[in-house]
Design a protein around this nucleic acid. Structure first.
Lengths: 349, 349
DNA sequence: CTGAAAGCGCTTACAG
DNA sequence: CTGAAAGCGCTTACAG
């Protein structure tokens, strides 16, 4: 890198490049930005670019943003970042999408704190973000904080009561159906469901999917096979597991609301010497690798599409959500992938 | 909010505020930014601020950054964001520190990809970040990517071979000592250590800490009680657990390299009907809530200070790392917190 | 205490 | 194809 003129910030400016290349600032700008409109001859462009490279020129994004009256920032608001790896996946998806479109994420983690949320929104508006992704770490309905009404917006993993904002959420129903099918397709006919008692998209949707799957297999829905649990964690799963074992005739398979519930169920089964999957086949939900991948036997599960939620919502924002006339907002359902492990018999054949 | 003049971007500018308040742009600027130098009368300042609030004025951060020749951006490079909740904790700590100093994080997740790293660094330099935090999700030595030599830098959870850059890392030795003490302080004298075979700060440090603790308790170090395992996960822990059970006399306590190893150990113990903590006390490391909090019995563990790594490194960067003459770089060790649960007997008394 | 003016580093009509 | 010039929305010496 050659010695170069310096400015206030100690950096090479476009004016420096122009001077050294013997062209005007305007020409340097066009040449460096490779404007499609062929305003600059190939020779000039190559020459200017060579000089820029030689001087180690880097554009000043602040100046560019100001003069273009447009930044390449997208705000991402999340209510948690480290509670689970879920938020991280969502961020990763959003980040990848942002990169694909040459945009930069301004991430704010609010921990559901309203002051932090307000500050985050203010910071984003001050930085002229082109749009905002509002996300939650578990699928739920939200009330939008104020301050977001004047900026292009998309929701990831959450939705508003009136569905007047475009949102992307997991297809809980289809996920519940897939989980149940993992068991029904193996010929199980007495399939229990340990569900959380919260009223949430996940509990309602997964139950609906479970019932759909039963119907499709010609099996009557038996409410007695739906075991409520709360909280939906290892302890709840253990308790529900004990209740499940006292059912007569005993179910041969069970779909657990989530992997932590399955973890507790495993404990209950072990105590009673019930083998998985021989005596009872088990399916979880969430596909938390650290649980599902390490239980013995490893747990078949249905995952949540957090990466895709982040990626799709950001992509939508950048491709459709920025225009003047938005498409009719919808709540778009994203599929939940099935992950087969060893807690269910292999499919015959 | 009153009707206000509009600009290109459709936003209220400082000029609008000045006009409406009947003052000059300069005065508006001073009034709005509450410059300590009392250049503006209280009356004027209050008036201008009232007008600004009335018009819903928000400063344009791009313009401010450009004219001040300084942004409030700090870059944060991480090699993983969703593998574990660790990176999320580190980010959260850094984010909180940034907020405390009115700075904004530009986060890039590279997944250890060198192209992504290069792009991230370029993006950060283009955005005139004031400094960069380079972090890894597990404690290790790193080679710095090029492009970071001209920017204030600090390392979090990693360090360079020559220690010529300030870094913050977990105190593995003290953590290992604390883990062993959790057992030794209960009177255990035959304390095994299931360690990973990788050569890493964690394995080396924790072993050193374990030996220190033994010495302090007047117990001779017995290499036969250090059981190697690889990979350091549930499977490795299970295998090591079986080996441990064949030792004679059998250890009464064991310190596991991490919680996943402990999870596998639990499986081995359960198979043999060995009770925790009555027959064997167990301590893990990492304090991964989803494992340690849910195993039966719950697992005592030593945590890693990811939040603090992020918070301390960012704070250092903003308070000491930005100056012209940096303090002598050091590798600063941060303490690993002990978390007691039920896999160790309660302390008598 | 207040204002006129220059300048930050770019982009982009507008002329030529 | 190339250049002179205005302008983005602020900050900050410098005068008064």
């Amino acid at each position: 890198m050659a010695r170069a003129p310096r400015t206030r910030t100690g950096r090479v400016t476009m004016q420096d490049v122009a001077d050294r290349a013997g062209v005007s600032l305007a020409t340097a700008s066009f040449a460096i930005n490779r404007k499609e409109t062929t305003k600059v001859s190939d020779t000039t462009r190559r020459h200017v670019q060579a000089v820029a490279a030689e001087l180690g020129y880097r554009p000043n994004a602040m100046a560019r943003n100001l003069s273009k009256a447009r930044t390449s920032f997208i705000g991402l608001i999340t209510d948690s970042i480290a509670t689970t790896p879920f938020a991280g996946q969502l961020i990763r998806g959003a980040q990848d999408a942002a990169r694909e479109h040459d945009h930069v994420l301004l991430i704010a983690n609010t921990e559901s704190d309203s002051l932090a949320t307000r500050e985050a929104i203010g910071m984003m508006l001050d930085h002229q973000v082109r749009g905002v992704v509002y996300s939650t770490w578990y699928h739920r309905q939200v009330r939008l904080p104020s301050g977001l009404s004047d900026v292009p917006l998309v929701l990831a993993n959450c939705f508003t009561g009136d569905d007047r904002v475009q949102s992307f959420v997991p297809d809980e129903t289809e996920g519940g159906r897939a989980a149940a099918n993992l068991l029904l397709d193996r010929g199980h006919r007495r399939v229990a469901f340990i569900n959380s008692t919260e009223r949430a998209p996940s509990t309602v949707g997964r139950l609906r999917g479970y019932r759909t799957a039963l119907r499709e297999h010609g099996i009557a829905y038996d409410p007695g096979l739906v075991l409520p649990t709360y909280p939906p964690d290892q302890r709840g799963g253990y308790d529900a597991g004990r209740r499940l074992l006292s059912l007569r005739p005993r179910p041969t398979a069970v779909f657990c609301y989530n992997d932590r519930v399955a973890m507790g169920l495993y404990d209950a089964l072990r105590e009673e010497g019930v083998r998985i999957p021989e005596d009872l086949a088990v399916v979880g939900f969430d596909n938390q690798e650290i649980i599902a991948g390490y239980l013995r036997p490893t747990l078949s599960s249905v995952g949540l599409p957090h990466y895709e939620l982040g990626h799709r919502s950001l992509t939508w924002l950048l491709t459709e959500g920025l225009g003047q006339q938005l498409p009719e907002p919808t709540r778009t359902l994203l599929p939940c992938p099935t992950v087969e492990r060893h807690s269910v018999q292999p499919l015959p054949g």
